[in-house]
Write a protein that binds this DNA or RNA. Structure first.
Lengths: 341, 341
DNA sequence: CTGAAAGCGCTAACAA
DNA sequence: TTGTTAGCGCTTTCAG
């Protein structure tokens, strides 16, 4: 009644177990006659190779883990989907791990999985560099939307993207911008801020950063108030979730978007064009990021050829203009008490 | 340089391998002195039990798979999150599988995983009953938002929910409703339609079903046109994604929501209250569905006690009233060329 | 309570 | 091309 093993198949087919094994793992090393016979017998018996036994020997599993910092952020959908599709194409299984914005959970989960998966995909990891290096020493690893020298990564080109945003705002007549920052341990948040700052300086705009804010719609209220308090006419929010919350709060406070204040987000999540006003945001081919990262990972996991280079892929972004940004019309003078950036 | 094994630990601790093994798997059968000593030595060596070897013996793996019919549907976020949190609490790993609305992919993926996971969670499975039964014969399985006699399941109570929807529409003065159906192989779609139909009949409303439609925003256009063509004043869409698309198209065609046409969705996804008009929809504690289902699954996976009953849990829904529904004011006579439902 | 030893199902030398 | 034979790392009788 138990599942049939190679022994059962070998016996029924009148061959050695190794032949059965080869028929499945290295078909080229068995005569086609024998192979077909073995496979036929196996099929008849309902034999399926036991993945645990296989993994015990090879140490490999055909399984990779993808860690996302917050699974409820729609931004990750496409990333996950791209990675998942690519994995499936190579018959790899994807284990999904949710870090809930906690570096601690992220680290623990990874360590728990380190000996049961072949590699890791870390999306917007919140872990400090040292941890990443340590993990990379244990298993192949590819970063998504985070860069670290020496480690393979795939990121959307936010430097260029931020430049586009600032260009856009400048051409609308804005003289200043306020960045509502993401989590302190987010590499992306830091990258965006420095890119915005650089672009602003170059174009002669003022720029200040407020926050950090947890990138959720619910945090948008506080973020919007802070921005208003700082006298912002142009707001760049860490991501669309936060931006959406900001717009909501602004509207609630009778501040018109974009007439009084322009708002830009990042990610182009699917709600961005459903909201009113629809959100101007920096998008990109997120699914491609997932796909590319998985590709690199599989390449270093599979023994086809060893890659000692750490490819750092940069994918293009695209500024999606919608209705949350517009020209500066009148001066909003909603200034209040001082507040440091 | 290789990972330390029980042999290394046994040697370093001056005990037998079996003692090391016991110290980890059945601590109660080792004197506390020995146990602590072994654990200390193990920790020092950086020993971690090899999950593959462990799985080879026990056949179990501390891993369960969750299959969703479409991972890009935000509705699943909370479901996944609930399941994932519950799994983590019991130190189980969650493998996420995306079926992309294809029963074929769903089935293949499950069969591929059947010998490497301890059980399955199937969310809104598109598989025919026979397949579900067959899978259930292979591994413990819990259905989410789908019911099948003899199999454990957790579903939101859509019968009551649909009744609430129809009540709501009736009390706004609507005399008819149009249901924009989900996929043909969706149990939920069938359930909703028959519940709507029953409630409508009881309240003396007319009801017709149009479709099926793939539940995506992009399908909303066609769905809206079909509904308009059928002279609808009240539309109940299979889910929020479709409903959002419908509203978008309606607005585009200058049909006012809710003045001319009311629209109701299902799921209460996060975009539902960001859209304009915000969407009236049937919500529920999705995370609880995930949690409850995982709970049942772990119960039947772990050898604590055998459950031969198949619990069928029904969780309450909640009608979230927003701005996409309103009283019937004037008759819309936007009829066009004939179109069959 | 602890140790010795036999596998779990499969793969990978090594021979033939 | 195929068979023989050790293990992979761990658990689990069975003794002691």
């Amino acid at each position: 009644m138990a599942d049939p093993t190679i022994y059962d198949v070998a016996e029924a087919a009148g061959v050695a177990t190794s032949t059965v094994s080869r028929a499945f793992s290295t078909p080229s090393r068995v005569s086609s006659r024998t192979r077909e016979h073995v496979l036929a017998v196996a099929a008849e018996l309902g034999y399926r190779p036991n993945p645990h036994a296989r993994a015990l020997l090879s140490g490999r599993n055909h399984t990779v883990a993808m860690v996302v910092s917050d699974i409820t952020n729609p931004h990750y959908f496409e990333l996950i989907r791209g990675a998942e599709m690519r994995a499936r194409a190579s018959e790899y299984t994807l284990v999904l791990v949710n870090a809930e914005e906690s570096p601690r959970i992220e680290y623990d989960q990874i360590q728990r999985l380190v000996s049961s998966v072949d590699g890791f995909l870390l999306a917007a990891s919140r872990l400090p560099d040292e941890n990443l290096e340590q993990i990379a020493a244990q298993r192949p690893l590819v970063l998504m939307n985070r860069e670290l020298a020496g480690l393979p990564s795939v990121v959307l080109d936010h430097v260029t993207g931020c430049r586009q945003i600032v260009d856009h705002l400048a051409s609308l007549g804005h003289r200043d911008l306020v960045y509502l920052a993401g989590p302190r341990n987010s590499w992306m948040a830091a990258t965006r801020w420095s890119a915005l700052q650089a672009a602003a300086e170059e174009l002669g705009l003022g720029a200040q950063s407020l926050g950090p804010f947890t990138p959720r719609v619910s945090q948008g209220g506080a973020a919007a108030d802070a921005a208003l308090n700082a006298g912002a006419t142009a707001i760049v929010a860490h991501n669309d979730l936060l931006a959406l919350g900001v717009v909501q709060r602004l509207t609630q406070r009778s501040v018109r978007v974009p007439e009084d204040v322009s708002v830009v987000g990042f990610d182009d999540i699917f709600a961005a064009d459903l909201a009113t006003p629809s959100l101007t945001t920096l998008g990109g081919a997120h699914a491609d990021v997932g796909r590319a990262a998985m590709e690199i990972l599989l390449d270093s996991v599979a023994p086809i050829r060893s890659k000692d280079a750490a490819p750092q892929v940069l994918l293009p972004t695209e500024l999606v203009l919608r209705s949350s940004t517009g020209p500066v019309a009148s001066q909003v003078s909603d200034g209040g008490t001082a507040r440091s950036g």
